[in-house]
Design a binder for these strands. Structure first.
Length: 371
RNA sequence: GGGCGGGUCGCUUAGCGGCAAGAGCUGCAGACUGUAGAUCUGCCGGCCUCCGGGCCUUCGGGGGUUCGAGUCCCUCCCCGCCCA
């Protein structure tokens, strides 16, 4: 794992952290939001645009790319970065989440999972080792171990079972380790019981991963519960390693999680909702399709300085969406990602200046939409 | 002038004696958190509602038959196609 280093630059008294994750493909300033490029594409945008809007790292998906076009194709292309023409760091998800949410799970055993492809029904067997091997073939920078993902609700017995298996897989993954040019994170699961989460955090931390992910949150559980679970986890992770909250990306959630010591995020929400016309603004989310925007000849978010907000209007975006023009999803996607990039930039500045809490409160108060 | 076909929610249409009346589109809203350009949900004649429903006005116009008519009959108007 040469070339990787996480530097904790500053910690807010309340717990928010400002850091830099150095990778062989560039540094990532944290807290950071990682746009999701499941199929080796952040839907609707080019990577030039992704770079331009301020993203320093993107997520791609092992599950999807393994099934199509196949990790071997990507390897022959010269690796994921060359394949998709993104020179910055890439984090790949292990595919654990997708095996449980998208595939037809055939069996779950000590050795791994057997599932059917949602694309062609073909059967595949994944072990923790195999998943690391696939990610090595893909050539991503930060990789994740196979884990067991639960939906909400899940009772403690289920969560404990899933956690035990996830932990044994984590131990196997840690033993195998990653090539020196990759960074392997550990994943903390544990369902919806704070005590179980705390135990999971401690045990994953014992495996001494260079970074830690928190999985299985924002899957339908009450927000207050998610925050409590997060508290239980981050307080038990080593200070010197980056913490990555998987799958979280609503603006208020990001601020709450940063306050709890999270450094990295990924989420499909900003890009997914953008494709149906929902955009983030400093006063909350809004749907540009709505009739009230028909004659609003103002920027999508008047408080945003992104390329979209500098050139286009709500009325125009509304027209694009109503006309089913592909530029609508493109502009909305660009704006939402730029919005989060800016939000992260502001959060970093606030932490550095020891004014994260007041900044967070002000920002949350202005952001009226409750999610 | 003659022969067919047709006029039902903004559009396209279903309906063939019990109908405030089905579908699709549009429209009006909502959902989406390790991806889903997908999809799903609610509303879409008016008024009231204790949300169970209640009342009123509707299927080109007028008249009629019938307990009951968008549906059957007469008549007028309009549209499309064909023949002259």
């Amino acid at each position: 794992m040469s070339g990787f280093r996480f530097t904790l630059l500053h910690a807010d008294p309340a717990g928010a952290r400002r850091g830099t994750l150095h990778t062989p493909r560039g540094a990532v300033q944290t807290p950071a939001f990682m746009p999701v490029g499941t199929n080796a594409t952040v839907k609707a945008l080019t990577f030039e645009e992704i770079r331009g809007l301020g993203a320093e790292i993107v997520l791609a998906n092992t599950f999807h790319l393994y099934l199509r076009p196949g990790a071997d194709v990507i390897a022959r292309a010269g690796g994921l970065h060359r394949f998709m023409a993104w020179e910055g760091p890439v984090l790949t998800d292990s595919g654990g989440f997708q095996v449980f949410s998208l595939a037809k799970l055939r069996s779950l055993s000590e050795d791994g999972v057997v599932f059917r492809s949602p694309i062609d029904g073909s059967e595949h067997a994944w072990t923790p080792d195999r998943v690391l091997e696939i990610q090595a073939t893909l050539g991503s920078d930060i990789i994740m171990p196979l884990d067991v993902c639960l939906g909400y609700p899940a009772d403690d017995a289920q969560a404990a079972d899933a956690l035990r298996l996830t932990m044994r897989w984590a131990a196997r993954s840690a033993r195998r380790g990653a090539p020196e040019w990759q960074m392997l994170f550990g994943i903390v699961q544990g369902g919806f019981n704070p005590a179980l989460r705390a135990e999971a955090a401690e045990r994953v931390a014992e495996l001494a991963f260079p970074g830690y992910a928190v999985g299985g949150l924002s899957v339908g559980e009450p927000r207050a519960l998610a925050y409590a679970l997060l508290d239980a986890v981050t307080s038990r992770l080593p200070q010197g390693a980056p913490r990555y909250l998987m799958g979280v990306g609503g603006p208020p959630d990001l601020l709450e999680a940063i306050a709890r010591g999270v450094d990295m995020f990924d989420c499909v929400l900003p890009t997914r909702v953008a494709r149906t016309g929902t955009i983030f603004t400093r006063t909350g989310r809004l749907n540009v399709r709505n009739a009230r925007h028909r004659d609003e000849h103002i920027p999508p978010d008047p408080d945003c300085a992104c390329q979209v907000c500098r050139r286009y209007t709500r009325a125009y975006l509304r027209h694009l969406f109503h006309s089913d023009e592909m530029l609508g999803p493109r502009l909305a996607t660009y704006h939402n990602l730029a919005f989060l990039a800016t939000l992260m930039t502001e959060a970093r500045a606030a932490i550095e200046a020891d004014r994260f809490e007041p900044w967070r409160r002000t920002t949350l108060d202005a952001y009226m939409t409750p999610w």
